[in-house]
Each structure stands twice: as structure tokens, then as C-alpha cells.
Simulated scan of single mutants.
Amino acid sequence: MTTVDTAAVCDQEVAIPIGAVELAAHLRIPDHPVGIVVFAHGSGSNRHTPRNTSVVEVFAGHRLATLSIDLLTSAEAIVGAKVFDVELLGTRLAITRRCLRSSSICRELPVGYFGAGSEAPAALWAAAEPRDKIRAVVVRGARPDLAGARLGGVMAPTLFLVGGLDIRVRTVNHRAAETMRCEHRVTVLAGHGPGSADLRISQRAAYVAAMWFAEQLRAHPAPAAGPTRDGDVDESVG
């Protein structure tokens, strides 16, 4: 990982070398962070999308550092096979997490994953890597079940954010959650569904996610298997 060791507060572009490619990312570290969230982007959304930069601001307000990474190069993002390759995206996300260990400014921070839309299953796939000690996960919508058998290997407390009006996605998320052995919660964002202009992340969803990460990264040591907590919590969206 390059150009990370600068100062206690950081807001800059960085490059993540992964095999033959170099992935673009943005590192934002507020004062006295409680942890760092790796925010995964694949297709249709990148680290500079206004909605995503607003999420980073919300996270910073909760003392959460963020590494917003584009898991595909610009050339790869137009190749359908790569866009939906959960193992490829998950592997790159896991390698990115390991790169954080080479940075003196990040290596001691507990790490969480955030995946929305097509990146949701990739975040869960990567979180199942036992040596990476992921402390918390949030996924938003889409098909987390595409992580397949890897769901059973996720030990980090996991929050599923789903649209209240989208019955299909809500059902898929509940089924995925039921296969997990870790602490988890399904939270329904009222007012979000097929008619929403953008199913990615609203300001309300960003706030709920930030609260989850702040609580889990601050309070939890390395995760271990334990009883599940599968609630169906309704949240009104402002």
C-alpha cells in the first residue's frame, strides 16, 4: 500500500497493488478513529460518487476511518463477468485488508467491511477469511446469498440493511442471515423498495451503518462464533 503513512489525520488518494493491477482508493482518517471501514465499490458506483462521499462524511462523524476502494479497474468495470465475480471481488477485498497491516497509521485499527448492491456478497465472502480478523460487516440490499457457503464462515457481527418495499430482496437477505453462525441483525429501511431512485445508501442507511460499525469496532475483540441475533428492525428513512 502506498502513500498512507503521512499524519494522524489523512484525506487522500492511495493505490493498492494487487497482482498485475493497481486499484484506486481514497483513505480518510478522522481524529482519534475507533476503527477503519473498507468500503467496497465495483460497478455503477465508485469512491467519487456523491452519495458515497456523503457516506464517508457520516462515518467520519462517528470517528470511523474509511478506505473507499474501486475493486475493478475502469477497463474491468465494463466486463460483465468480472462485475459479478464474487470470488474475484472478495479476494481483492481481502488482499486490501492485509495491505492495511503495512501502514503504521492503520495497522492497529480494527477493520470492518461495507458492501452495497453487487458488492454485498463480496464483502461477506472476504469476511469469511479467518486470518483477517474482521470485526464488523454491513451489507446493503441485493444478493448477499451469492457468497454461498462462505456465509457460514463469517464470524464478525453482521448487519443486513434491506428495503422495506422490496419483498424479494428482503426475503433473500433473511435467508442469507439464517445460514450464519455469527451475531447478526436484519434492519428494514422503511420507504425503500423497487420504486426508489437509488437502492444504494441513503443518509439514514449511512447513519444506521455508522452506528453499527462504531459500536462493534469499539467494543469487540476478535470475533468468535456465538449465538445469533436475528432481529427484523424497522427504520424510518429521512
Rank of each mutant, 00 (worst) to 15 (best):
V34I: 14
G117V: 02
E76I: 11
L27I: 12
I29C: 13
A65N: 11
S74N: 13
V111D: 03
R168W: 06
S45W: 10
V169Q: 11
C99A: 13
Y207T: 14
Y113N: 08
R98F: 03
R63V: 01
A40R: 00
T179Y: 01
D198F: 07
D145C: 12
S43T: 15
E87T: 12
A177E: 00
V137Y: 04
L159E: 01
E57K: 15
S43I: 12
L72C: 08
F160W: 05
M180K: 10
I105C: 08
V162S: 12
S196P: 02
T187F: 00
L72P: 08
H184Y: 02
R51H: 11
S68T: 13
R107P: 00
Q216F: 01
S74K: 13
G19S: 08
T6P: 00
T187N: 06
T91S: 15
L199S: 11
Y113I: 04
I95G: 03
I167H: 08
Y113L: 15
A116K: 08
L64E: 02
A222Y: 12
G231P: 00
A77G: 01
D234A: 13
H26K: 14
V34L: 13
S196Y: 06
A40W: 00
R107Q: 14
L89V: 07
L100S: 07
S102L: 14
G112E: 02
S54Q: 13
G117P: 03
R150D: 10
I36G: 04
R107F: 06
I18Y: 10
G238Q: 12
D31E: 14
A142N: 13
A176I: 07
V38D: 01
R97Y: 01
D31A: 15
V139W: 01
T2E: 12
V139D: 03
W212L: 03
L100G: 12
E235R: 13
R204I: 01
R47V: 03
P227S: 10
A149P: 01
A65T: 10
A176Y: 10
A40G: 12
T53N: 01
V172K: 12
R204H: 09
M155I: 10
A210D: 05
E87D: 14
A81T: 15
H174Q: 11
E76L: 13
T53L: 10
R185D: 11
N173C: 15
A142V: 00
G148A: 14
G153K: 05
A149D: 15
K133F: 08
A206M: 09
A94N: 08
Y207N: 02
V86D: 02
R175T: 14
R168E: 12
D166P: 03
